[in-house]
């Protein structure tokens, strides 16, 4: 009687120690891993908040040509079409992230990486790009071209 009671108590103590130890190991591992993983995650860089940027002077942008404009930390492509219209789109290809360019000979926005093509409305018309390019708003203020986010 006495013996088994003793045994029972021992079992209880052993279990207690087991939980304590397991809990300790888990807690310790967590305490080591959590800061490590958190450290490896790059901090959110405050997006350079811009709503409007200058795309340069109209007189300096020839008809039937395009250029890349810096919009915060994203590239935007500005195109002056043959019909003298101004268009702007996000310049990051929707396929795999390359930066697109205006291709005069074809009259399209072209991605050199895998030969993706967009028409001058930003629609993906050939090659691998899965989605159209995000459009931006362009207005003229005197001779200056202003590009802003479409709301």
């Amino acid at each position: 009687m006495n013996y088994s009671k003793n045994n029972f108590e021992k079992q209880g103590r052993r279990n207690f120690l087991k939980y304590l130890l397991t809990g300790g190991v888990v807690g310790f591992t967590g305490a080591v891993l959590y800061p490590l993983i958190a450290y490896l995650k790059p901090p959110k860089q405050a997006d350079v908040e811009v709503s409007t940027v200058s795309g340069g002077l109209l007189s300096e942008l020839e008809k039937d040509s395009g250029k890349i404009v810096r919009f915060g930390n994203k590239p935007v492509i500005l195109v002056r079409t043959i019909n003298d219209e101004l268009r702007a789109f996000e310049a990051t290809c929707t396929h795999l992230d390359c930066t697109v360019q205006y291709k005069k000979e074809m009259g399209v926005i072209w991605c050199a990486c895998h030969n993706g093509k967009y028409d001058l409305a930003g629609r993906n018309i050939a090659g691998p790009p899965p989605r159209p390019l995000q459009p931006f708003r362009v207005v003229l203020k005197g001779d200056e071209i202003l590009i802003s986010k479409q709301s």
């Binding site: 590239p75 390359c98 930066t99 697109v100 360019q101 991605c111 050199a112 990486c113 691998p128």
Partner: peptide, 24 residues
């Protein structure tokens, strides 16, 4: 230059080429 269009002839190193080509 992150603000220049991608140049032509972007190709991965030859040992990635077969995977890359397959994806196409």
């Amino acid at each position: 230059d992150p603000f220049a269009p991608a140049p032509e002839g972007i190709k991965p190193e030859w040992y990635f080429l077969f995977m890359f080509q397959t994806l196409k």
